[in-house]
């Protein structure tokens, strides 16, 4: 086999795999719909406001409920010792009050 054919084979299988992933993702996402609805129901029933991605600090646990600006407040972009604090962007409420 020529070297170039080997390369095409590799690229071809990469492309096939990518296509397979896209198709698979599509079907999984569709199959997940009932699950998503179930989660939406949990939000509604419990009156939740935030995703539980991080539990270490209250402003990353309840991102949308974090305090507004005041000196030394716990703001997601403030320099602090919570690693998750550097991950999230500030909540919409905060951004709004900046506009």
């Amino acid at each position: 086999m020529r070297k170039s054919d080997g390369f095409w084979l590799f690229i071809g299988s990469g492309m096939l795999l990518l296509a397979a992933i896209l198709i698979q993702a599509h079907f999984v996402a569709r199959a997940d719909l009932p699950l998503l609805r179930q989660k939406a129901a949990v939000v509604k029933n419990l009156g939740l406001t935030d995703l539980c991605l991080s539990t270490e600090a209250r402003y990353t646990r309840h991102l949308s409920q974090s305090d507004w600006h005041a000196a030394f407040q716990s703001h997601p972009l403030a320099l602090d010792h919570f690693p998750s604090g550097s991950v999230f962007a500030p909540p919409g409420t905060l951004k709004k009050s900046h506009d």
Partner: peptide, 26 residues
């Protein structure tokens, strides 16, 4: 008081990892 609307909460999560966010920058 302050009032947080549903739209604002949804928007928070829409922009939670924007390109200025920590992980993205890193």
């Amino acid at each position: 008081t302050r009032a947080i609307t549903r739209d604002e909460i949804l928007r928070t999560y829409d922009a939670v990892f924007d390109w200025r966010g920590g992980i993205m920058i890193a």
